[in-house]
Structures are given as structure tokens and as C-alpha cells.
């Protein structure tokens, strides 16, 4: 058993909030460059050039990549031999979010009451915290601020088993096509396949944490990822919906066993500012 003081979690979250909103992950930069070189239309190239330049300017100025610095989503992988001391986990994460968003001049985008828009909490808390208990005594924090524009285009379906693989591909491609330019393509698509209603959504969000373009270790899931990506890019939506070959940069599918009667499918849409950062305590 290892004691971990929750003040370390607050410090780590504050730094992750500040940095993840400014530094575009290297895997995303690589994917954007590859897309830029592949595109044939002048407008698509112009958009991708602006995004690459944006990452440079954010790095140089310390300004956030995007004004929507998101809801703070924090995945905590908590070792079962780790013992948190000094306070409550949610409160510690919230304290980190409060400090990080204030010190980093980040936008506070959370309302206390979803039906009353005048109830901004003023410090971007509470964070959305997902805890998973894992072997060992480590504590790993994944920080992924989530913007509203792309989150709004996400969806969940309870497909019939007979709809199968083709039904999965069709549902996702149709959703991305209908969303068009609104979620800020080129996108990263997190897909949760199987599980139950709520687990599929969580798997879809967790899929976004995977390094961009790293295929699933399971060959048939990796093949599904390739086919979904091809179908989505065939929509022609392109960067910012203005047409082109790159509607999505990557598709990540996380699969889980499910009920014989069910085929849950969740799609979490992520914009090109695929911000994610991890730290181990």
C-alpha cells in the first residue's frame, strides 16, 4: 500500500489543464501535416495550414489553441494498492481545475443548472471524473478538455444485432455527414462498440485517449477502424465542412462484450484540437 496525498492530484490537474489547452499533441500535428500533404483542394489546404499555424502560434504565445477550453474530463486509473490521503478525490481534481483554468486564463464554460444559463460556476468546476481501479499502486491521470461544438454532434444508438458491422459503419458515416462543418472537422472519432447503454458511451470517450492513428491491437477491430475511416472520409465533408479528403484524421474503436439481444454503439465526436495529456503520480 502506497499513500498518495491528494494535493499532488490537484497540482497535476492544474498543470495538465494549463498545458493541454495550449500544446497540441505531437501525434495530432503529425496527422494534420499528413492530411495537408494529401489534400487536393486549395480551401482544404488553406484550412489545414491555418490549423498548423495555430498550433505554432499557441506554442509561441501561450494562448489556448481554441477559445473553447472545454469541460475538464479526467480519467483516473487508480491502483488498488494506492491509498489516497489528505482529502476527497473529486474535491482534489476540482481544486486542480479551478487553479489551472484561472492561472491559465482559460474560459470557464460550465453552468451549474443545465436549464439556467446564468449559473456559470465561474471556475469551470465540477470536472467530469471517471475512476477505474487497476492493479498496482500507481495513480495515472488522463486529462482531456472537451469542447461543446464537437460533443454536441456525438450520438448513441442501440442497434439490432442484425444490423451488424455494416450498420455500425452506416450509422457513424451518416452522423458525421449530417454534422458537416459544425464539429470542426477534421475529426477524431471515438467509438464504443458493445457493452451496455452507458458503457458504450464511456468506451467511446476513452477511445479518444489513444495516441492518434494507433490501431486497435485486435486485427478485426483495426480493420473496422480502417473501414469506418474510409466511409467517413468518403462523405467529402472535409476540413471545416468546406470539402476535401480529410473529414476525420483517425477512428478509434473500443470493443466490449454485450447482451445477445443488443448492439450498443456510441460515437464521441472530437474536433481536430484533440487535446489529451497523461501524467503518472
Amino acid at each position: 500500500m502506497r499513500d498518495v496525498d491528494v494535493s499532488r492530484i490537484s497540482e497535476a490537474v492544474a498543470e495538465l489543464a494549463r498545458r493541454s489547452n495550449v500544446e497540441l499533441p505531437a501525434d495530432v500535428v503529425v496527422a494534420l501535416r499528413a492530411a495537408r500533404d494529401r489534400e487536393e483542394s486549395g480551401i482544404a489546404r488553406e484550412v489545414l495550414d491555418q490549423l498548423l499555424l495555430n498550433a505554432e502560434r499557441a506554442d509561441e504565445t501561450g494562448l489556448p489553441l481554441c477559445q473553447d477550453t472545454g469541460v475538464a474530463v479526467v480519467f483516473v486509473d487508480l491502483g488498488q494498492d494506492a491509498h489516497l490521503v489528505g482529502g476527497e478525490l473529486q474535491a482534489a481534481v476540482d481544486e486542480g481545475v479551478r487553479r489551472g483554468y484561472e492561472e491559465g486564463y482559460l474560459r470557464k464554460s460550465v453552468v451549474r443548472n443545465p436549464l439556467d444559463r446564468s449559473t456559470n460556476t465561474g471556475d469551470n468546476t465540477p470536472a467530469v471524473v471517471h475512476v477505474r481501479v487497476v492493479p498496482g499502486d500507481g495513480v495515472t491521470l488522463h486529462f482531456a478538455p472537451k469542447g461543446g461544438g464537437s460533443e454536441n454532434m456525438s450520438a448513441l444508438w442501440m442497434l439490432t444485432p442484425a444490423q451488424g458491422r455494416d450498420g455500425v459503419i452506416e450509422a457513424i458515416a451518416a452522423q458525421v455527414g449530417a454534422a458537416a462543418g459544425m464539429p470542426c472537422p477534421p475529426l477524431v472519432l471515438g467509438v464504443g462498440l458493445g457493452g451496455t447503454f452507458e458503457l458504450s458511451a464511456l468506451l467511446a470517450k476513452r477511445a479518444l485517449l489513444r495516441p492518434l492513428g494507433e490501431p486497435s491491437p485486435e486485427p478485426d477491430v483495426a480493420a473496422l477502424e480502417r473501414d469506418v475511416l474510409a466511409a467517413v472520409n468518403e462523405t467529402g465533408v472535409g476540413p471545416m465542412g468546406l470539402g476535401g479528403l480529410t473529414t476525420a484524421l483517425a477512428v478509434h474503436v473500443e470493443r466490449h462484450p454485450c447482451h445477445i439481444a443488443s448492439l450498443p454503439l456510441a460515437l464521441n465526436v472530437q474536433c481536430h484540437a484533440a487535446r489529451h495529456m497523461t501524467v503518472e503520480l
Binding site: 484550412v47 491555418q50 490549423l51 499555424l53 495555430n54 498550433a55 502560434r57 499557441a58 504565445t61 494562448l63 489556448p64 489553441l65 481554441c66 477559445q67 473553447d68 461544438g149 462543418g181 470542426c184 471545416m240 468546406l242 474536433c271 481536430h272 484540437a273
Partner: peptide
């Protein structure tokens, strides 16, 4: 149309 997410630029 401005490029969404190009907030720093």
C-alpha cells in the same frame, strides 16, 4: 467561415 479551433492564430 473562420477556421474553428484556430483560436490562437
Amino acid at each position: 467561415v473562420a477556421v474553428g479551433g484556430a483560436g490562437a492564430l
